[in-house]
Lab assay of single mutants.
Amino acid sequence: KILMCPEHETERINMYCELCRRPVCHLCKLGGNHANHRVTTMSSA
């Protein structure tokens, strides 16, 4: 099953924010609420 980002509906979730303990997409990481947070790949989470 492909998970889609709730904030960016057209983007797949492919990362996990370690600080917030939630999955995020690349747009969340690049310029969103998680820009300065440490993220890992979903396969490592």
Rank of each mutant, 00 (worst) to 15 (best):
K1C: 01
K1H: 04
K1Q: 04
K1R: 04
K1M: 04
K1N: 08
K1S: 03
K1L: 03
K1W: 02
K1I: 04
K1Y: 02
K1E: 06
I2F: 12
I2D: 12
I2E: 10
I2P: 03
I2W: 03
I2R: 04
I2K: 05
I2H: 07
I2N: 12
L3N: 11
L3C: 10
L3T: 13
L3H: 07
L3I: 14
L3W: 04
L3K: 12
L3Q: 11
L3S: 11
L3V: 10
L3E: 15
L3D: 14
L3P: 07
M4C: 09
M4K: 10
M4E: 06
M4G: 04
M4S: 05
M4R: 06
C5E: 01
C5W: 00
C5P: 00
C5F: 00
C5R: 00
C5T: 01
C5I: 00
C5Q: 00
C5D: 02
C5N: 00
C5G: 01
P6Q: 10
P6E: 11
P6G: 07
P6V: 09
P6I: 05
P6R: 07
P6W: 03
P6S: 10
P6F: 05
E7A: 09
E7W: 03
E7C: 05
E7G: 04
E7K: 08
E7V: 11
E7D: 14
E7R: 08
H8G: 01
H8Q: 01
H8L: 00
H8E: 01
H8A: 00
H8W: 00
H8K: 01
H8V: 00
H8M: 00
E9S: 14
E9R: 09
E9G: 12
E9Y: 09
E9K: 15
E9P: 14
E9N: 10
E9I: 10
E9C: 09
E9W: 03
T10I: 10
T10N: 04
T10M: 10
T10L: 07
T10Q: 13
T10H: 10
T10A: 07
T10V: 06
T10K: 14
T10R: 10
E11M: 03
E11G: 10
E11Q: 09
E11V: 07
E11R: 01
E11W: 02
R12P: 15
R12G: 10
R12V: 11
R12S: 03
R12E: 11
R12Q: 15
R12W: 04
R12K: 03
R12D: 02
R12I: 07
I13P: 15
I13V: 03
I13G: 15
N14H: 14
N14D: 07
N14A: 10
N14C: 15
N14G: 06
N14L: 13
N14Q: 13
N14Y: 09
N14F: 15
M15C: 15
M15P: 03
M15E: 11
M15R: 03
M15V: 03
M15A: 06
Y16G: 02
Y16T: 15
Y16Q: 03
Y16V: 02
Y16A: 04
Y16M: 15
Y16D: 08
Y16P: 08
Y16S: 07
Y16W: 10
C17T: 01
C17G: 01
C17E: 01
C17R: 00
C17H: 01
C17V: 00
C17W: 00
C17A: 00
C17Y: 00
C17N: 00
C17P: 01
C17L: 00
E18T: 06
E18N: 06
E18V: 06
E18W: 05
E18A: 07
E18H: 03
E18S: 06
L19M: 12
L19V: 13
L19R: 14
L19E: 15
L19Q: 12
L19A: 15
L19C: 15
L19H: 12
L19G: 14
L19P: 13
C20H: 01
C20I: 00
C20D: 03
C20R: 02
C20L: 01
C20E: 02
C20V: 01
C20M: 02
C20P: 00
C20F: 00
C20T: 02
R21L: 08
R21H: 07
R21P: 03
R21D: 14
R21I: 02
R21Q: 12
R21N: 07
R21E: 15
R21M: 08
R21Y: 13
R22N: 04
R22I: 05
R22Y: 04
R22K: 14
R22H: 12
R22S: 14
R22T: 08
R22L: 11
R22M: 06
R22E: 13
P23T: 13
P23H: 08
P23A: 09
P23N: 11
P23L: 04
P23S: 09
P23R: 06
P23G: 12
P23F: 05
P23C: 05
V24K: 02
V24N: 02
V24E: 04
V24Q: 02
V24D: 02
V24T: 06
V24M: 07
V24R: 02
C25W: 00
C25A: 01
C25G: 02
C25N: 02
C25Q: 02
C25K: 01
C25D: 02
C25E: 02
H26Q: 14
H26Y: 15
H26C: 12
H26I: 00
H26R: 10
H26L: 06
H26W: 03
H26A: 14
H26S: 12
L27T: 15
L27V: 10
L27F: 06
L27Q: 13
L27R: 12
L27D: 05
L27G: 07
L27H: 13
L27C: 05
L27W: 05
C28E: 04
C28Q: 03
C28I: 01
C28V: 02
C28Y: 00
C28W: 00
C28P: 01
C28F: 00
C28H: 01
C28S: 02
C28R: 01
K29V: 12
K29P: 10
K29Q: 13
K29S: 12
K29N: 14
K29A: 12
L30C: 11
L30Y: 02
L30Q: 14
L30N: 14
L30H: 09
L30D: 15
L30E: 15
L30M: 10
G31A: 11
G31Y: 06
G31E: 08
G31S: 11
G31I: 05
G31K: 08
G32S: 10
G32K: 07
G32F: 04
G32H: 04
G32D: 12
G32W: 04
G32C: 07
G32N: 05
G32A: 13
N33S: 13
N33M: 11
N33C: 09
N33L: 11
N33W: 06
N33R: 09
N33V: 13
N33D: 12
N33Y: 06
N33F: 07
H34K: 02
H34V: 02
H34W: 01
H34I: 01
H34C: 13
H34L: 02
H34Y: 02
H34F: 01
H34P: 03
A35I: 15
A35H: 06
A35Q: 10
A35K: 09
A35G: 12
A35F: 02
A35T: 09
A35S: 10
N36K: 11
N36R: 06
N36M: 08
N36F: 11
N36Y: 06
N36V: 05
N36Q: 13
N36I: 05
N36H: 10
N36L: 08
H37W: 02
H37E: 10
H37K: 06
H37I: 02
H37G: 07
H37Y: 03
H37S: 05
H37F: 02
R38M: 12
R38N: 12
R38F: 07
R38Y: 12
R38S: 13
R38G: 15
R38C: 13
V39E: 13
V39Y: 06
V39D: 14
V39I: 06
V39W: 07
V39T: 14
V39K: 14
V39P: 12
V39M: 13
T40Y: 05
T40E: 10
T40W: 04
T40V: 11
T40C: 09
T40D: 13
T41L: 06
T41N: 04
T41I: 06
T41R: 08
T41A: 08
T41Y: 04
T41K: 12
T41P: 09
T41S: 10
T41D: 11
T41V: 08
M42Q: 14
M42Y: 07
M42N: 09
M42V: 12
M42D: 13
M42W: 09
M42L: 11
M42I: 04
M42H: 02
M42A: 15
M42S: 14
S43K: 07
S43P: 15
S43G: 11
S43C: 07
S43N: 10
S43Y: 02
S43L: 06
S43H: 09
S43F: 03
S43A: 12
S43Q: 13
S44V: 10
S44T: 11
S44P: 13
S44N: 10
S44W: 04
S44Q: 10
S44Y: 05
S44R: 08
S44C: 05
S44D: 14
S44F: 04
A45R: 08
A45E: 06
A45K: 04
A45L: 06
A45N: 02
A45T: 07
A45S: 09
